[in-house]
Amino acid sequence: MIIDSRTMESEDEESLLGQSEEEEDSELSDDALQEAFAKGLLKPGMNVYVERSKQFVNNVEGLKHCLADFRKDLPWVERLDMTNLPAEDVIFKAEGKVSSGKAGDVNADDDFQREMFFYRQAQATVLDALPLLNKHGIATKRPDDYFAEMSKSDQQMQKIRKKLISKQLILEKSEKAKKLREQRKFGKKVQVEVIQKRQKDKRAMMTAVKKYQKGMTDKLDFLEGDKKKGKDSSQATPASNKVAAKKGPNSKRKFKDQKFGFGGKKSGKKWNTKESHNDVSSFRAKVANAKGSKGAKKGAKGGKQNKRPGKSVRKKIKSRS
């Protein structure tokens, strides 16, 4: 039994009629095949698939007729088609070489040569097309107030605009915060410098006050602060001179100055000399040894005796004075 491909195709077409028919046909075909196999009618090599050769139709006349229908006699402005050879290679010309404008001379595997060929061909097309466009009154440059037509909708562009504005506001806020931080740092630095300057001026004033109290100076320029810093003492007001002359050192300072002096060398007034060392005329044994004569002792016992008052009495006397 030989099964031809045509019979197989007919069976396939019949199988597409319905699902129930397909199931019945499949069951019948299976039963028929089983019976044929049981009878020994099916043997290896009997089922042969016949392949049909594909027929290629080259209808030249039909293609030309279709091309004639497609072709329309339109002006060049509507077509804008250009067929150009590549422009002259400037590099080859500068090197003294001759470059042919044929595409067959370009190595297709060389990417650089291929891309340069395309570039030169486009360049030649532009050079030939620009005069034609200007001749037909077609502008080749955009005007200054030209706005490109967006392919996106206005709603989408509004969203993009809002997003860009929000980003710009965030950047401005960050820059403002950064400037404020820098200003705070600078302000803190200036504040520290001002405090240090005040402390320095205060120490200088306290030092000047102590010198004035000790009588080491009679100037009161430090009382006027920064007003007198750039001025000489000759420019002092008469009122300040009167105050300085009137005030002067207090009585305690005058007493200490009179008693102890101002320190330093005392010009040797209390130094012993040979004559003063040998002079014993002022020596008194009673005073030196705290011993008096018998009469003096008797007189001291019989007469008035100067005793130092007690501590409580001395305090009362001191508080009265």
Results as ranks from 00 to 15, higher is better:
Asn306Leu: 00
Lys54Asp: 05
Val192Asp: 13
Thr7Arg: 00
Arg308Phe: 02
Pro75Ile: 04
Arg253Pro: 13
Lys102Ala: 06
Asp31Gln: 11
Asp25Trp: 14
Val313Ala: 06
Met116Gly: 05
Phe283Arg: 06
Val90Lys: 06
Gly137Lys: 08
Ile165Ser: 15
Lys97Met: 02
Gly292Val: 07
Ala129His: 04
Met216Trp: 14
Glu24Cys: 15
Met157Gln: 11
Glu24Ser: 13
Gln113Thr: 01
Lys291Asn: 12
Gly104Tyr: 06
Ser99Leu: 14
Asp111Pro: 02
Gly303Asn: 02
Arg308His: 07
Gly215Gln: 04
Ala38Cys: 09
Asn107Thr: 00
Glu193Gly: 14
Asn59Thr: 02
Leu41Thr: 06
Pro309His: 02
Cys66Asn: 08
Ser15Trp: 15
Gly104Phe: 07
Phe92Gly: 09
Lys211Tyr: 07
Tyr49His: 14
Ser251Pro: 03
Glu149Thr: 15
Leu169Thr: 12
Phe112Cys: 00
Asp128Trp: 05
Asn289Glu: 15
Phe186Glu: 10
Leu80Trp: 02
Glu172Ile: 01
Asp111Phe: 00
Phe186Pro: 10
Gly302Ala: 10
Ala245Cys: 06
Glu21Leu: 12
Lys265Met: 12
Ser321Met: 06
Ser281Ala: 03
Asn47Glu: 13
Arg314Ala: 00
Gly310Ala: 01
Glu172Gly: 12
Val287Pro: 07
Arg308Gly: 11
Leu33Thr: 10
Val57Met: 04
Lys178Cys: 08
Val90Trp: 03
Ile160Cys: 08
Arg198Ile: 07
Cys66Leu: 08
Ala32His: 14
Ser151Gln: 03
Ala139Asp: 14
Gln305Leu: 01
Gly187Cys: 15
Gly248Pro: 01
Gln55Glu: 11
Arg161Gln: 09
Gly225Thr: 02
Lys227Trp: 03
Lys189Asp: 13
Phe222Gly: 04
Asn58Thr: 05
Pro44Met: 06
Lys297Tyr: 11
Lys162Pro: 05
Phe255Lys: 02
Leu220Gly: 00
Arg284Glu: 09
Asp221Gly: 09
Glu88Ile: 09
Met205Thr: 08
Gly299Ala: 12
Ala108Met: 01
Ala290Gly: 08
Ser29Gln: 15
Leu171Glu: 11
Lys316Ala: 03
Val190Ile: 13
Ala108Phe: 01
Lys210Met: 10
Leu74Asp: 08
Lys246Pro: 08
Glu275Pro: 07
Ser174Val: 10
Lys167Thr: 15
Glu51Gly: 04
Phe260Tyr: 03
Gln121Thr: 13
Trp76Met: 04
Lys210Gln: 15
Ile195Gly: 10
Lys141Pro: 03
Asp218His: 06
Ser319Asn: 07
Gln305Ser: 01
Leu164Arg: 13
Lys246Cys: 10
Lys200Val: 13
Asp128Gly: 06
Gly225Trp: 02
Ile3Asp: 10
Ala285Asn: 13
Lys178Met: 11
Ala290Pro: 05
Phe92Pro: 11
Leu28Val: 12
Glu115Thr: 03
Arg314Gly: 00
Gln158Asn: 03
Asp218Thr: 03
Phe147Asp: 07
Arg71Gly: 15
Gln156Asn: 07
Lys159His: 14
Arg308Leu: 04
Lys229Arg: 05
Lys163Leu: 13
Asp154Ala: 14
Asp81Gln: 15
Asp218Phe: 02
Gly230Ser: 14
